[in-house]
Design a protein around this nucleic acid. Structure first.
Lengths: 246, 246
DNA sequence: CAACTCAAACTGGTCAACCAATTTCGTAAA
DNA sequence: TTTACGAAATTGGTTGACCAGTTTGAGTTG
């Protein structure tokens, strides 16, 4: 977010158009309405539409061709983007599980004393926040990022976080996210974090990997429980970890 | 890239301005020249500058405020972006190694016959491309993505790919990237891919993980060789894999 | 002298008109 | 009938003028 919470107009328009692509069954390669058509339709100037198109182009939804028109992006970009908007946070969480547990295991061998001290401070911050009943999303995030930093993989973990945050903003998952951070769940996660830190302190890679896996498994189960999906579509995500677990 | 290799004008301008931010010592929070100033300075209309600003805003470099001006983005966004441009592709490759080898191992248990057939086709595509001396970046990328798709982790792998591609565009690594895709290297990578496919076909998770690790290790060594870094700064990346290797 | 006011001079936001590349389609030539 | 041509229509590209918030500072007031 750019400091101010307000959105620029072109962003709103772009989002509305992106929704349109997703909902009106556009497929890669399909011709999208022209800038003029949309400006008339929405009663705004073409410049605004144009700026929105630029945003959509940058985000990989649109492919604009001079003299010809704009087309829903062909190739992988769009199909992945469409997939993104169709899938829930479960896939993402699975990815985090895979990634962060590997990183935690690796961190056991690279972590320094000062890293451990910092992690302990972060944990203390979390504990105090929970006692006071405050929001502590920041501390939770910091804990995960600091472990990644110890292996110099923070860029990647941060990007997964960004994806996660984007999903939070979608109306579909917003309510879910609010409930996730109820104190009850965070208290149990605090124990998970403590277990991870303990494993790292003993430089036990296997244990660290396992602890991180279990932590994110708990998050996943919580998420699943909160969203009370009986939806069989989600079965695909309910696999037994064969990679990072023993 | 959006099918056509040609860049839209606003993109060129945005890149030139991004270079300016990086080279002229702008720091987060600093005020950036106004749209009018730059349009005069470059002899173009303000709309073009405006479109470029939008691109820079989306990419997290700029924070534009109505009535006030545009500022070099503060907070994590820009610092991460600055970090991004400061770091080489080695860190990213390490992340890919960690991530994709885990995914390959997992894919061994989830992959279907049709997935394997598709992978074989992609491999054949690569082989033919190399024989004809053509570019085949697409096929290489497709191979890696298809494995990820088998575990429904394509979103994540795709994002790492995006980061990778961004780095390619930076002048610092562009030349390096061109040389990577010389035929000689790609031929040996073809064998790597074949080994990965073989392991997946036998549903041997451990072997698949190892093969993918080794493949990206080869890529890393090639990269290292091509960039002939005696630079001790890179020592941090030259670690022995303790996580995903045996 | 300090604090307030408010208008002028900035800033980005929006618009409608014109430019240039591409596509389309009727017409004429083979 | 098929092909080749080219003008007209359609597309995105670019521009300058005007609109709407924000900042600034001279002038006023206590």
């Amino acid at each position: 977010m750019t400091s101010d919470g307000s959105k620029r107009r072109y962003q709103e328009i772009a989002e509305s158009l992106a929704r349109r692509i997703a909902e009106e069954g556009y497929r890669p390669g399909d011709k999208f309405p022209t800038e003029r058509q949309i400006s008339l339709e929405m009663g705004i100037s073409r410049s605004l539409v144009r700026e929105a198109f630029i945003m959509l182009e940058i985000e990989g939804y649109l492919d604009v061709r001079k003299g010809s028109g704009s087309y829903v992006a062909a190739g992988e970009k769009i199909s992945l983007n469409i997939q993104k908007s169709d899938f829930g946070p479960f896939e993402l969480l699975q990815a985090r599980q895979l990634l962060e547990s590997s990183i935690a295991g690796f961190a056991a061998s690279t972590i320094t004393k000062s890293d451990i001290i910092k992690l302990r401070e972060t944990l203390e911050l979390e504990r105090r926040a929970i006692e006071n009943g405050e929001e502590d999303y920041f501390a939770d995030r910091q804990f995960h990022l600091r472990i990644a930093e110890a292996t110099q993989n923070s860029v990647l973990v941060d990007h997964v976080e960004e994806l996660w945050k984007k999903r939070e903003n979608s109306p579909m998952w917003a309510r879910l996210h609010d409930r996730i951070f109820d104190l009850s769940y965070r208290t149990s996660w605090l124990d998970d974090h403590a277990a991870i830190l303990e494993a790292l302190r003993h430089r036990n890679a296997e244990q660290a990997r396992l602890a991180m896996w279990q932590h994110l498994e708990n998050v996943r189960l919580t998420l699943l429980e909160l969203s009370d999906v009986g939806d069989p579509e989600f079965d695909g995500y309910l696999y037994t970890p064969t990679v990072a677990s023993p």
